[in-house]
Structure formats: C-alpha cells, structure tokens
Write a protein that binds this DNA or RNA. Structure first.
Lengths: 336, 336
DNA sequence: ATGAAAGCGCTAACAG
DNA sequence: CTGTTAGCGCTTTCAT
C-alpha cells in the first residue's frame, strides 16, 4: 500500500501538501501543485491509512451500536436505517448484541470504546446505570435507542409506549371489552415495558375500569412462558375477554396457546399484539398490532449521534419521540 | 486516558517492559517488575490504545460483514451467530448491507477495507467478480457466506441448495404432485437461486417428470411480483397443483395471492416455502418450509475467517456445506 | 532481564 | 503558498 510519503515523492512535494489535499484544505494551494498531487494519488491508487489518521486526530468515523437482542426482527429493520444513515455520512458501523445480559452489555460497550468508536447507540438492558453515568461524566457521545433510562441525562430516540398501550386499550374498550389482560416480560428498568404497563393502567383508570392484579401476567424471559400465562388467564374464574401482548415473541406464544387449547381468536378471546411485520397479516388470525417505525428510529438515532459527534459543544440533551400506529386486523371482536 | 508512558513512569520501568506485559511476553521478566507494572496498570486503569497497536501491527481485530439484505430476518439469526463467535475470539464486528446493489457492495467492501478490517465475510451480490478476484489476488482474507461465486477460488460457508430443492420436490412428488411450479427471483449469478432451480430440474428428471418452462416463474425483485406470478400460474390452462417458493418474501406473497384470489391452501394448490422462522407455524396455513441453519452458518463463517486471519499461510480453500431440513406442516396435500 | 531508539502513516503548528 | 518538524501511542529490534 502506498503511503502519503510515496505520493509526496512522486508529486515532488512535501507530505504536508499531500495531507492538505487529502483534507481538502485548498485555500492557499496553487492549482498546479494541487493537480500534481491529485495525479500522483490517482496514479498510485492511494488511500490514506485511516488508522494513522485516527491515531492522530482521535476520530475514527465509526459508531457502535449495542442491541439488547439482535434476534428480534424489529432490530433488523432498525439496523437497516442506522446503516443507511451511516453510509450517507461516511461512518462505519460496529454492531453487537447483549442478549439482555448486563455483563455482555458492559463488555460490548467496553469493546466499542476500546476500538475508539466515535459514539454509541445503546439499546440498554437497564441494568448498568453506573456505565451509563460514566459515559455521561466522560462526555462520551451516545444516545439511548428505544429504551431510555430515567436517571441518566442523555439523548434518546424513543417510541411513545404509553400512547401505544392506550391506543390498544381504546380499541378494545370501544369494542366493549371490560376485562382486559396484559402479558409482559419483567419490567427490569426497561422503559418500554414500564410504559406499556403504565399506559394500560392509565387507560383503565381513564375509563373507570378496575385494575386487577390477576390480569397482569409477568412472563419469565424464556420461551414458552407466554403460553402458560395465557392458559392461566383463561382458567381464571372470571377470564379476560381480551389479551394485550406487549412483545413480538409473546404475540406468537399467545397464538400457540390458542392453538394448543383450541381457543378461537377472536371468538373466545381477542388478542392484540406489539410490533408489526410483513408476515403478521398472514398469521392465523391476522393479528391487530401496534406498529413501530423501526427504520425511522434507526435513521434518527444515527443522525442524532453523528450530529452530536460533530458538534461536541454541550447541547441540552434531546429526546426524539416517535408515534406508534395501531393496525387493526381480525384478531379482536366485541366480547360474547 | 493514560498511555503506556504513564504506566512506565509510575512503575519505574521503560515502555518496552510495559509493552511486554500487555502482550504477555513474560519469558524473561522478573516477577517483581511484572508485578510493579501490573499494579501500575491497575491503578491507572490503563487500556492500550488499539489504534496505536493496530497502526504498528497491522491487525485491528475487527472483521467486516457485507450482507446482501439486512432486512431479511434470516440474517438477523445469522448475525447473532457471527457476533457470538466474534466476542468469543475478541473480535469486533463491522456490519453493512448492500441491499443487493452491486455499487453498494463495492462501496461497503471499500469502506471495510479502508477501516482495516482484518477479514471479510461476504454475502455477495454476484455482480462484482473483479472485486472478489482482487481480494484473492491481494490475499485479503475473506469468506463467502451463503452464496459462493464459481470463478473465484475462496472459502465459503454454504447450505446445500440442490439438496434443499430436492427435499421439497421429493415431498411433493411423494404426495402425488406431477405439475409443480417454482417461483424465484432472477438468478443473477447468485448461487442459491441457481442451485434451487437446478435441484428442481434434477428432481423432475430423476422422477421422469417433464420440465415445463411455463411452470418456472422468475419474479421481478420488487414487492408484489410473487402475487402476480401465482395468479399467472393458477390461470394456466393446466395449472400446477403445487408451488415451490424459493424465498421467504415470496412465501408471503403466495399466501397473499391465495388470500386475494380466494384459493384454499392446500386444497386448491399446495405451497412449500424456503426459510423457517418462529412465526411460520402460525401462518394460515402453517407453511411447510426448508429450514436453514442460519445461526450455525454465522458461527462457522466467523470461525473460518478468524482462523484464516490467524494462520495466514496459504491453506487450500475450504467449503463448509451445511444441510437444510424440510419441515412438514399443513400447506401441502395430495392433489385433487 | 531491561532499556533506548526507530518508526508505523498521518496531522498540524510554525516558519519562511 | 509550501516545507520542516514534532509528535499521536504503541511495538520491536538491538544493545547491554
């Protein structure tokens, strides 16, 4: 690989001049030297060594993202948006996944920092407050994605989960449902989970419906827990007429439970889920869901962090709150 | 951030000794100096600057992956495997997606190379032979993932697509189907597409069934083309009794066509698809599909490239061929 | 068993 | 307008 020195030699100038060309500092440069250098670069097929540049300038033009669960197809869409925006701005993207494990999140953040990512997008596990605080303290640029963390003063790109839950509840209540259950994973400081539950509660209160603890099912974060939850709900003396699923995995487990137990959806019980995907219209039955703008979230998060990297000056921390959309299909009907 | 010099000063030794500790070259080091240095590192909370290390050693401990379409959920699973293996070996992972566009693939590979990724995993678009050749010529370590490229002598991690197609065909033929259609995207040098079609043809030949061009539907790589293909097939004077879909997106479009046109699957036509996901059992009807070991593919590809990076010596290029599995559900039945 | 010194490829004062 | 110089933080001979 040719170096800046080779170019300088071939063009008959100093390295400084070549460096000026690389960095487009043409202000005081004569056109003919510029041309000589450009020609030499062309001829040698030279590209600056970004490692050397980064060492010198302390900027890598790489951002890192820590996902909580890369297996969730929502993130695939989101990653697409992030990657798009990165390319647009000439940034590279390092990806990692914590699989909801706090230790892995720590490790991933450490790796990304060690590789000198200019900034981080963090879909936090909610279990590493000290690290998030450190980042703030050291003014390491980062944004929270999809999940915020209350005691940490940082930029975030979020979807309004209270609103999402309320849209769900409004739809069900309008259909005449009065006993509505919610299934969710343990909240564990994860803001979307907390807020969806909160939206559920608020909607009940606003409609003068009683809150009943037995209709709130916290599912262990393992496969199959949603099936059991559904079965328990439907075995209640006074079972719910509708179930609000707060997670894409749980959506499927509710369908599995119905299949297993022979319930008809929506005749026996209405189901409404979270997260929409291209295959959701073809499920049995086509599921009504809350759709989140994943791609847009990705673009915005990337744009935000890149912007933050560029102008390092203290800006008041900013939250971008996107709106979810309720998509009505055939999995809900008025209760019998 | 403390540098190696700070550690040396605090420990009262030279930078060389600190470097030896960082790189675990303890052979000739007295235990007490080792301890002094370790203590200083601890105390200062020092981590070596990986940019400086990389500049010196020409290794970044980063690998890059170029996906052809990050939106396909198959890659989410695969990425998970890649990322796992990367962490295990202490490698960072840079991700990009070409969205099947050759120019984007070029650009992504260029970016990854510029960032000095030690090796590349390429899910190629099949349209950039010159670049793949360059990589080989320059001995830049890379492996092809899921798609190989015939004229390029490189390592690959693949799934046996001929076998996949044959398993599909065997299942259908055993059920009594004689007119079986295949829908696919333009082959465009993409080995899985070529091979699935090839497997289809071979299976016909081996079972003394005629090959009929009208039963092969090449769909434009845009949304909705599969719907039209299905409608054309079913409007044939002698329509197929079964359709083999070779792509996860087309699976859904066939279901959409059925829904739109009121066909019952499998009564009116049997459908069998490619790629299995957690939601496939809940589709209407539960789709029989070919399942590919995506996670395993990711792990193997990462392991292969990391291995290749480590021992640079010329090794004969290696292909790992994994087996797909046919999962039978309810979307196929003997023809009427 | 340890240190001195050169240099990876680049940028950025500072001179001139 | 352009070149000289001094590093960025590390590794690696080569001495001792």
């Amino acid at each position: 690989m040719p170096t800046i020195y080779d170019v300088a030699k071939k063009a008959g100038v100093s390295k400084s001049s070549v460096s000026r060309v690389i960095n487009k500092r043409f202000e005081y440069m004569r056109d003919d030297t510029k041309k000589k250098i450009l020609d030499a670069i062309e001829e040698l097929n030279y590209t600056p060594n970004s490692l050397a540049q980064s060492l010198k300038t302390n900027r890598t033009k790489v951002i890192g993202i820590v996902l909580s669960d890369i297996a969730n197809p929502l993130w695939a869409e989101l990653l697409n948006g992030v990657q798009e925006e990165c390319m647009r701005s000439g940034y590279g993207l390092m990806v990692s996944s914590s699989n909801e494990k706090p230790e892995l999140e720590r490790e991933n953040i450490a790796i990304l920092r060690n590789k000198k990512a200019d900034g981080l997008i963090i879909n936090n596990t909610g279990q590493n407050q000290d690290i998030y605080q450190d980042l703030v303290k050291e003014k390491y640029p980062f944004v929270f994605l999809d999940r915020t963390y209350q005691d940490v003063q940082a930029d975030s790109v979020l979807v309004n989960n209270i609103l999402g839950a309320k849209k769900v509840m409004k739809h069900l209540i309008n259909q005449g449902h009065r006993r509505i259950a919610i299934v969710l994973y343990p909240t564990e400081n994860k803001s979307p989970r907390i807020e969806r539950l909160e939206g559920y509660k608020q909607a009940l209160a606003e409609n003068q419906l009683p809150f009943s603890q037995e209709l709130v099912k916290i599912c262990a974060p393992i496969r199959g827990s949603g099936i059991q939850a559904a079965q328990e709900l439907l075995s209640l003396p006074e079972p719910p007429t509708a179930i609000f699923s707060t997670h894409a995995f749980l959506n499927l487990e509710l369908l599995a439970a119905a299949k297993k137990s022979g319930w008809h959806i929506p005749k026996d019980v209405s189901i409404i889920g979270y997260d929409d995907f291209p295959w959701v219209p073809f499920l049995a039955p086509p599921l009504s869901t809350v759709s989140q703008p994943a791609h847009k979230m990705g673009v915005q998060a990337a744009a935000l962090i890149i912007n933050k990297i560029k102008r390092k000056r203290e800006v008041k921390s900013k939250t971008i709150l996107l709106e979810p959309t309720l998509i009505v299909r055939e999995s809900c009907s008025p209760p019998q």
